[in-house]
Nucleic acid binder design. Structure first.
Length: 278
DNA sequence: AAATGAAACAACCGCTTTTTT
DNA sequence: TAAAAAAGCGGTTGTTTCATT
């Protein structure tokens, strides 16, 4: 017996989400949470399948999402993690607060991949495409780091040095920078070696560690009341929403602290690494 | 100003994994 | 322990936006 489809295709709307749908989904999740994605569309009054709702929430509506292009530092983290983990986008995303796997995957396919190829690096193996002609590219790290630091306006304008940012990111997730210093964005050459040493690699160890929610996290009880979502939900609910066919208003959330790398709920920091489940 | 192509990104599909019964 | 349900994940596609001619 096969598995049931996630939703019956009849009467299920597809394609881009409208502002009204977004509003309904946000309102519903903020006031009820989501016990079961399959039930969400029905309860929220949406003609979507649960999967679509989950995706929309996870990739676009979650208040703790960062918007905009990845910074050079984030890009460097992605490259470094990809060298170790491959296309495990969710694992990579888990280490970049406010970023989604989809976003990182898209960015990889549209930006980073091309950049690496241009630099003579195989984006799959992170080895030089042609060892003879790209001798400096001993590893992705050295080359890419050199590139990103020498490059450009963008690189200089928003940067603390990449390593600092990476350290912050890692530290925010409880990873000791001293342990990672030779394995993350260091310009050293050993970290991306594709040998079987990953088991001992502290970074990989850390990456592969689960951060399993216990189920008792306060944010899982998002609706309990003391949570400061009033602003959020009132904006989401209000008829004065600046809908203009898009959801640009979501960007505004960042202006009052919901959109940065984390969301504070009852003193707990929620970021993408714990999935921001409500 | 219009047409065309490229780039970017949101969303879907199908498979895998995890959880529940 | 097995089967079913639900959720998660990664690959791919479709649409929109931007840049160039």
């Amino acid at each position: 017996m096969g598995r049931q489809p996630c939703c019956d295709k009849l009467g299920v709307k597809r394609g881009p989400w409208t502002a009204e749908e977004d509003r309904k989904l946000i309102n519903f999740i903020l006031s009820n949470g989501h016990c079961c994605w399959r039930a969400v569309p029905k309860l929220a009054g949406l003609l979507r399948c649960g999967k679509s709702c989950r995706l929309r929430w996870t990739n676009y509506l979650r208040p703790d999402l960062k918007r905009g292009l990845l910074t050079d530092a984030e890009e460097q983290v992605v490259i470094d993690l990809h060298a170790k983990l491959g296309n495990r986008w969710s694992k990579i995303a888990a280490k970049l607060p406010g970023r989604t796997d989809n976003e990182i995957k898209n960015h990889w396919n549209t930006h980073i991949k091309k950049k690496l190829i241009k630099m003579g690096i195989d984006p799959v193996t992170h080895e030089p495409l042609d060892r003879k002609t790209s001798s400096p590219a001993t590893t992705s790290h050295s080359v890419v780091t050199a590139d990103s630091t020498s490059k450009s306006d963008e690189a200089t304008k928003q940067q603390s040095p990449a390593s600092d940012v990476v350290r912050d990111v890692l530290a925010a997730d409880g990873f000791s920078p001293t342990e990672s210093s030779t394995n993350t964005v260091s310009t050293g050459g050993s970290s991306s070696s594709s040998g079987g040493s990953h088991d001992q690699d502290p970074l990989v160890k850390w990456l592969l560690e689960e951060d399993p929610p216990t189920g008792d996290e306060p944010w899982l009880d998002f609706t309990a009341g003391s949570v400061d979502v009033d602003e959020f939900s009132s904006i989401a609910a209000g008829p004065e929403l600046p809908w203009d066919g898009a959801t640009d208003w979501l960007l505004d959330y960042q202006d009052f602290g919901l959109g940065d790398s984390s969301l504070v709920v009852d003193g707990y920091m929620i970021n993408s690494s714990n999935g921001a489940k409500f």
